[in-house]
Design a binder for these strands. Structure first.
Length: 562
RNA sequence: GGGCGGUUAGCUCAGUUGGAUAGAGUACAGGCCUCCGAAGCCUGGGGUCGCGGGUUCGAAUCCCGCAUCGCCCGCCA
């Protein structure tokens, strides 16, 4: 609907330019807003105020020209008038609103989807947890946001590749192996022989037990059998990483989050990609030796100090494989890449981008794009749960899903914009009360389904497509309000996807559910008036479909009963 | 000291990319089920949009400065 209004205005502007009534072409993009006050119509346009200066005319005078050229014979509008300082307000005819229901029905499960990214590829990397422990609540937020972004991009036509990067090399993995080894030898965390920075969680004991029992880890792409030798640190490392990767796979499966590609940091070393990147950086003259280490001159690309690439002990720092990894993404043809990660890693952005620029491969400066989410704090029993991976005290994603339910966890994690910190109150999320917005939304869907059952018992069906004339009886304020909101789904999906902000869709859902509940309380659906009953059932069928489509885009179920 | 993010109703948060009288949930006060699911609806009070400048027809939104909270600033990842 918004697009139709845009087209009306653009056509009028063209006509004005042709007739030389307006001279300031090319005109700026036409932006159609929705007034906060319903008395100001369904849509409004501020173009007249923007043009006024260049036209040397009063805004209202410009608006008058545009309105005259829009004309009144489109059938789309019931009214179109100048208001305030020079707004053009559009009042869409009820008949035009009613007919959108037929379009929603025709689009069915695809209603809400757009074609903005059609035919284009995008790669989204998210979660990317180190295989040193089960996924915790912070990874959960990343998983929920990342997965929702993928679904939103798919809903707007993009061909999405979901990717998970495993840091299975480096210091943390050594600590993991040493921790498991210590447990194999019966060493406790308070023992003097306990490794520095060792992981103390209970799950380390489980891994050690499995290792000593010579168990086999079976997962999609890996089958690792433990030798059971506490002195073989390499074997312990392989086994532990396999164990924890399997563990994380299961966590993600429980959350209904799936990936297309898993890249292992270790593979970047074994394939020589890390060495190749370093060589290229040296050849391009962006590196230098100092204090026995090899440095990258990241200050040439906006960093506040240069960074070590190869430590004096010969090992590489984490961001070197990161650069190699991202070069690989570029070479795979992804001209658009989005990385979703915790904001505590934001300092990597400038380093990775600097490294990519230093490679001189024609990679754009702002590539890849980033979505950073802020910290999650956990409340249980009104008290904050301190998260410490090493001490092993934290809420795992799996526990949370088991306790709260997958739908509620997903909804909670995405209902605030990624930029704001999130307080996850476990007790509140567990409550099946109206405080919990996911229940409010799902309840609306279940309630509609229940009405259909009731209608079926009374001999009504909502299946057949009505004649356009049959739905003109839908004219109460609540009915029209509901229809207007239904037709706003595609715009909402588009906005959410473009801004990587899934929370916009959760707000839409809450508003739509509320709109339905208001309608329900004031308008009886099943009545003696058979024609009206049919029309209202038809409206509710579209409402249920819209709720379900939007929920599906967020990976949340639309139950028919609760 | 530097970087990123936050600051809007008692509390938790939105704010359609600069628009008209700043919204929702919760909490509080009151009302609505002989009737399709009350996990619901309706009404009411509640605000210096952190502070101060600037930009313009118009600012919660953009620019500058300040305050404050969180995260980061390692030859850890």
């Amino acid at each position: 609907m918004r697009q139709r209004i845009v087209a009306l205005v653009e056509t009028a502007l063209q006509a004005a330019a042709t007739a030389e009534e307006l001279v300031s072409s090319p005109f700026p993009a036409v932006i159609i807003g929705t007034p906060a006050n319903p008395e100001h119509g369904d849509f409004s346009c501020n173009i007249a105020m923007q043009l006024a200066k260049g036209e040397r005319k009063a805004p209202r005078q410009v608006a008058e020209i545009i309105i005259r050229l829009i004309g009144s014979n489109t059938g789309l509008l019931s009214k179109c008038e100048i208001a305030g300082p020079g707004f053009i307000n559009f009042y869409v005819a009820p008949a035009a609103w009613q007919q959108t229901l037929l379009e929603i029905e025709a689009e069915g499960e695809t209603f809400g989807r757009t074609s903005r990214g059609s035919g284009k590829k995008v790669q989204v990397e998210f979660v990317s947890a180190n295989p040193t422990g089960p996924l915790h609540i912070g990874h959960g937020r990343g998983a929920a946001i990342g997965d929702s972004i993928c679904r939103l991009l798919q809903a707007t036509g993009w061909d999405v590749t979901r990717e998970f990067y495993y840091n299975d090399a480096g210091q943390q993995i050594s600590n993991l192996a040493l921790s498991v080894q210590a447990r194999c030898l019966g060493i406790e965390p308070d023992d003097l022989r306990w490794p520095t920075d060792g992981y103390q969680g209970e799950y380390i004991k489980d891994v050690a037990r499995s290792y000593l029992a010579k168990e086999t880890v079976d997962s999609d792409d890996r089958h690792v059998t433990a030798l059971g030798d506490p002195d073989d640190l390499d074997d312990i490392r392989n086994f532990a990483v396999a164990c924890l990767r399997r563990e994380q796979d299961q966590d993600l499966k429980a959350f209904d989050v799936h990936f297309d590609v898993f890249t292992l940091e270790s593979s970047l070393y074994s394939e020589g990609r890390v060495e190749a990147v370093v060589r290229l950086l040296v050849e391009n003259g962006h590196a230098y030796e100092q204090d026995g280490a090899l440095w990258l001159r990241t200050t040439e690309f906006g960093d506040d100090k240069d960074r070590v690439m190869r430590k004096s002990d010969g090992g590489y720092t984490y961001f070197v494989p990161d650069i190699a990894y991202h070069l690989g993404k570029w070479e795979r043809g992804f001209t658009r890449v989005v990385n979703e990660q915790g904001s505590d890693h934001h300092s990597t952005i400038i380093r990775v981008r600097a490294g990519l620029q230093a490679l001189n491969r024609g990679i754009p400066k702002g590539w890849p794009e980033y979505v950073l989410h802020q910290m999650v704090t956990v409340l249980r029993g009104g008290e904050e749960v301190k998260i410490s991976k090493r001490a092993g005290s934290y809420v795992t994603l799996r526990d949370l899903i088991d306790e709260v339910g997958r739908d509620a966890v997903r909804f909670f994690f995405i209902m605030r914009k990624p930029d704001s910190q999130l307080v996850f109150d476990i007790d509140l999320a567990k409550e099946q009360s109206p405080d919990n917005p996911v229940y409010y939304v799902q309840y609306a869907h279940a309630r509609i389904c229940s009405i259909f059952e009731n209608a079926r018992d009374k001999g009504f069906t909502a299946s057949e497509r009505p004649l356009p004339s049959a739905i003109t009886v839908l004219e109460t304020p609540e009915e029209l309000q509901l229809i207007k909101l239904l037709s706003a789904l595609p715009d909402t999906v588009d906005d959410s996807a473009q801004n990587f902000e899934p929370h916009r869709l959760t707000y839409y859902l809450t508003e739509l559910a509320g709109c339905f509940h208001s309608f329900y309380n004031k308008n009886r659906v099943i009545s003696e008036d058979a024609d009206l009953t049919q029309a209202r059932l038809y409206l509710l069928k579209r409402t249920a479909q819209t709720l379900k489509n939007a929920l599906t885009i967020l990976g949340i179920s639309a139950p028919e009963r609760m």
